[in-house]
Nucleic acid binder design. Structure first.
Lengths: 337, 337
DNA sequence: ATGCACTGCACAAACGTTTGTCGCAACCTA
DNA sequence: TAGGTTGCGACAAACGTTTGTGCAGTGCAT
């Protein structure tokens, strides 16, 4: 009950049981059965008892100094404020704590320089490995990192042939296009997000391919780059309309971009879905609750996070791993009926 | 360029400069001027040079083993998926990295038991202090923690008289109520969120007080508890309508609850804002982009995060600190015109 | 000439773990 | 009975820092 008593150490409990700290360490670090190699049954019981009674918690920094493993992993995301990445991170953090490792997360703002400095900061913290949710297809940074022997996995986006956990965005795009085509839409425009993000590009590419296979051509000028947020969708949509285009369907590769686009459509008096259908991506919780519920593609964000950290930990254990691609699911709602 | 060379240590650079590690440590840990106490000008320059050339990064776990300070702070939030908390955390993390400390964040799901176990996990990681974004007014847990000598600050919500950084939610509630009253609304209902969250309660209380001062009574049955998300707002709204109430204004103490409520209103054919005005809270980025732009109260989330960690670090340095209450700002938009 | 304060560094002891190695019984096998 | 194995545990050396103390040499005043 002492307000500022120093933490209990191995030494204290070793003294109390009258054995060496090494013995206590071994006993506390192995399972009941395995511990029999290191002490008699009574000793094991007594050590465990005293440790629990004194409230022993091993000092992680002392341990990692010795073991050269920190039990820490760094996570980089473009922006945690983005609910998509926040959800992925929740999955990462959840599985990480279950497995006894801790995670640092930080924003890179999708800026290559920030990404590099933040990564170095993580490495300076002696993380065992990294998870990138902000991989760029246009940067060799990850290749350099791999060459340096740093262990990492990618989530959400893929790049190069680094280990990655992604949603099958190519398929997601195809699902959207096929659905729009089936409902008679022909003049499809795509708000495709950042050009360096594989998510955006794959979704757009999938849609374009599906259209082409159905004999529908999507002209270049109808594929707009923009951000993955409301403002980005708004901007891209304005740009599109400014060119004089009058599409009958909008595929935004992100729910928030879709919301931004719908804001512009409302301002211009264009009705959804009568004049123009709108489809998003990710099935964010609000998608279903909008004035007109949003048609979207559900991607397994939470699971991607869990799988990401699981893969990383397996790599750190030296096990062989392979990239994972999870299936998307089209959810048809009011904006494309 | 060695793929797996071991990190550079003090020892290595000490050997190269032919001085003791202690000297190197002192030089590297002080500013140029201050370092003069520990070595000649030439030595300081040489040490700095070699350290930079070899890419020396101090080992944080070795340092904290010695100093008994980890440079780590733990952050607990109800749910990171909630953009409000995500934004607050961004503020925390931003200022923390600027000041050279690292943060762990984890979800408590607003569950007292999870909150306690996660806190213990953080303490086992030897964090120097904690930030709680999930304080409950109905739990003595934080008092116990304070009694144990743990350093922490609260953000977003306050509880007891622990140091906290909050928005003036009482005032925020009053602003909303006065605005609704000014536009002629009289039958005001409040979706007040979790009863144990000071944010929800203060916002509701502020509104109720302002109404009473204006001679308008809000009956108990028009104040509904619910979650801070879309589903919670939807549920509370359905509950309200099920009681036969027909309010002409809804004050949801959270933007997402407001969106959920508007979903229900739409289903019932009630028009916003003609039949019923809707006001949210927090001014989330989507608020401005909804089918009908949402009237809301802007709360300084990012700044609350920054101030929270700043206060904590000051406390850890032994400086005296006081709670901070930041002003809200009413943003009137389409849902209450 | 003696004392004293600086300057500029070295020495060494921690901090709390983990882990390779060794010792010493008792027990089995031949 | 000799030699080998097994069970139970101690010893000690790290891991990379930080920090209290010591100690020469120099300059200055006494």
């Amino acid at each position: 009950m002492n307000t500022h008593s120093r933490p209990v150490t191995l030494r204290m409990i070793a003294d109390e049981v009258a054995v060496d700290t090494s013995t206590v360490s071994r006993i506390l670090n192995s399972t009941d059965l395995d511990a029999r190699r290191w002490g008699s049954v009574e000793l094991i019981a007594k050590v465990r008892l005293v440790a629990a009674a004194r409230g022993y918690r091993r000092n992680p920094q002392a341990a990692s100094l010795r073991t050269r493993r920190s039990g820490l992993v760094g996570v980089l995301v473009p922006r945690l404020q983005d609910p998509v990445l926040a959800t992925i991170y929740e999955g990462i953090e959840e599985s990480a704590t279950e497995q006894g490792v801790s995670t640092f997360v930080t924003n890179s703002m999708d800026d290559p320089e920030t990404q590099a400095t933040r990564t170095e900061l993580m490495l300076a913290r002696r993380v065992d490995g990294l998870i990138f949710g902000d991989a760029r297809t246009d940067s060799p940074y990850l290749d350099d990192l791999a060459a340096r022997g740093v262990t990492f996995v990618l989530v959400s986006r893929h790049a190069g042939n680094h280990i990655a956990v992604t949603c099958d965005d190519l398929l997601g795009g195809r699902l959207v296009a096929n659905s729009l085509l089936a409902s008679g839409r022909r003049k499809i425009a795509i708000l495709s997000g950042q050009p360096y993000a594989s998510t955006a590009q794959d979704r757009a590419t999938g849609a374009i391919e599906a259209c082409r296979e159905a004999g529908v051509h999507i002209p270049e000028r109808n594929v707009l780059a923009g951000g993955f947020d409301v403002a980005g969708g708004r901007k891209a949509m304005e740009e599109l309309l400014a060119c004089g285009e009058r599409p009958d369907a909008i595929f935004a590769t992100n729910d928030f971009a879709a919301i931004g686009a719908m804001g512009v459509l409302r301002d211009r008096g264009m009705r959804v879905p009568d004049d123009v259908a709108v489809v998003g991506y990710n099935d964010t919780p609000i998608a279903a609750e909008l004035g007109i519920p949003l048609t979207t593609v559900r991607s397994p964000m939470h699971e991607m996070g869990r799988l990401g950290i699981d893969l990383l930990l397996r790599m750190l254990r030296g096990e062989p791993v392979e990239s994972v691609r999870l299936p998307p699911e089209l959810i048809i709602r009011g904006t494309s009926s």
